[in-house]
Design a protein around this nucleic acid. Structure first.
Lengths: 335, 335
DNA sequence: CTGTTAGCGCTTTCAC
DNA sequence: GTGAAAGCGCTAACAG
């Protein structure tokens, strides 16, 4: 079983009584071939079960028909979904999707990036949180397509695909306002992070658009964690006039807020409404199920894939592009 | 930026004043090289930043230094963890890990497997639920290493790595027995599935080992879902003498059981203890956090990786192997 | 519209 | 202990 005889392009050419060149061009479509020859070659390929060898092709073309997703935290359910979106679009086009973890330091990421570039990976979705400009630069310098998931658009650093955090947060707050809530507290992650910043902006915008002036005492910054949410909720619910609703920076914080609500002998949404952000799986599992904003990981993956397809097939695209996807409000029982 | 000049083995050879053959052997260690030559070559490699081209190597050797994980459901958090375990071991060894989704029919899986074999993937972890014998057979026939995650050991179908479901379930039940619970109900998934079967066996074994005869009226089969768990709990808690504890077939069922407990105005573990299985992320997020059994996805991944390493490096291993990993009881507040 | 041919960068006989 | 040279299977000039 060690030495199976793969059928090569030469076998096909011989059997179809044409040159290997012709077979190659039937496959690639990079040169006109008479319909008669074409169909004959195709038939022989089918008969022989010929499958081109990607290594050989890659050696010639310098491409690998594969793209990689680099992540820091594999356990975050966001990334598998993004990967699924990539697959949906890229797998039918013959691409292989590799998922690479680059935990730890930026140097670990150096190693991973270099490994990928060695393999002449055609495209990279950089979802590693510790990525630096030098990583982006080395990727694009190698001629590899790059998509980032946040940051500022820069011609040297590839395309960007991201969700509309601000709009999403504005939607939740507007939903609460339209449901009659007025005193709405924000238990947010720190505004130093991109999501913290953007989500705070959405909260403020929605209130103002509704004609309300934000009350700073109702805005809390904590870690983007369950315990951070619990602490934030504790602070806000201890106020003289406690808020009627707690808008949280992400679902984990909302879970923590629910812990606090329960602990204080209150109920949600009876005594206080609670909302999350991201729509992780647990958002639907907790009690009450959380009203939240769906972070469209799958669609982000598809958008990345389409950018790759544009760049990798046909004529070179110049300039960089940014795709912003809408977030979607998911109303459940916590509001 | 189209044509960067990669440095090749010939450049190294020239600069080090040796033949390409020697450089190749310094790299592979497949032939003795004098220490002096060796260190010189190594130095030049470093100076020039030479990196072997995987496509060229693959073309010669028929191997790709990469392994794939094929899954059906990308959103199941079990698989990313398994992938992380694979990475931890295989990435340092120079392997690339690809994650492939084969949703849908067995025919989709055919396509994915064929694609992977075309690329001369070195190893496949088959985690797709719809895999059939023909898939296993075609993989091993192509000389590609295969690891499955369940089933019967068969020389034609590669190695197996799995967790000890029966032992894990026995551990939970024993934990309850030792905590003083006696009437212990089982809200299980259907015993037609491998996990359902094995977990039931663990439940029965633990009771008997403790000297108790299982009461059939306390054993319920439902779907492995939240609503299945809710239904099962409803049935058991409606009994004349309701059980003191509900052991559930997986965490989702336990979440459903908690729904029912709450709905009936009862509390866990005050009125009734509840346990899960798998230790998905949500198990720690629900209230009360679930006592459950940790399904060691990460360790399974590492075990798969080690089997690959054994088969892919050095002398051919013959025969097939099975690795059974222990499950671990996680005691939280629901018991 | 079709064919001949020169490599892509590496591993590996075979020969010294 | 070291080299020369023959391909691995394919693509893309170049040449009709």
């Amino acid at each position: 079983m060690r030495k199976e005889n793969r059928v090569g392009i030469a076998d096909v050419a011989a059997r179809a009584e044409v040159s290997v060149t012709t077979v190659s061009h039937v496959l690639s479509g990079r040169r006109p071939v008479s319909e008669k020859t074409r169909s004959k070659v195709l038939r022989v390929i089918d008969e022989l079960g010929y499958r081109p060898d990607p290594s050989a092709r890659g050696l010639r073309t310098g491409r690998s028909e594969s793209v990689a997703l680099i992540v820091t935290d594999v356990t975050n359910p966001f990334y598998p979904l993004l990967a699924a979106g990539l697959q949906e679009v890229l797998q039918p086009a013959g691409f292989l999707i590799s998922v690479c973890a680059a935990q730890g330091t930026a140097h670990d990421l150096d190693v991973v990036v270099r490994h990928l570039l060695d393999r002449r990976i055609d495209g990279i979705v950089m979802a590693a949180l510790n990525a630096q400009e030098r990583h982006f630069a080395s990727i694009t310098a190698a001629g590899t397509a790059l998509v980032r998931l946040s940051g500022e658009l820069d011609p040297r650093f590839g395309d960007i695909v991201r969700a509309d955090d601000t709009g999403g947060m504005a939607d939740v707050v507007t939903h609460l306002l339209e449901s009659g809530y007025r005193r709405i507290g924000l238990v947010n992650g720190t505004p130093e992070t991109p999501p913290g910043h953007l989500r705070l902006a959405g909260y403020l915008r929605a209130l103002r658009d509704f004609g309300l002036e934000p009350d700073e005492s109702l805005i809390i910054s904590e870690a983007f964690t369950r315990s951070g949410g619990a602490r934030g909720a504790h602070a806000l619910l201890g106020l003289d006039t406690a808020p009627e609703a707690l808008v949280c920076g992400n679902d984990l914080m909302a879970v923590g807020a629910l812990d606090t609500v329960r602990e204080k002998g209150l109920t949600a949404p009876g005594d206080v409404a609670v909302t999350g952000f991201d729509d992780i799986e647990a958002a639907a599992l907790v009690s009450p199920p959380l009203t939240t904003v769906h972070n469209p990981a799958f669609e982000i993956g598809r958008a990345c894939a389409r950018l790759f397809l544009d760049r990798l097939s046909g004529d070179p695209v110049d300039g960089v592009r940014e795709v912003v996807l809408p977030q979607k409000l998911i109303v459940r029982e916590s509001t």
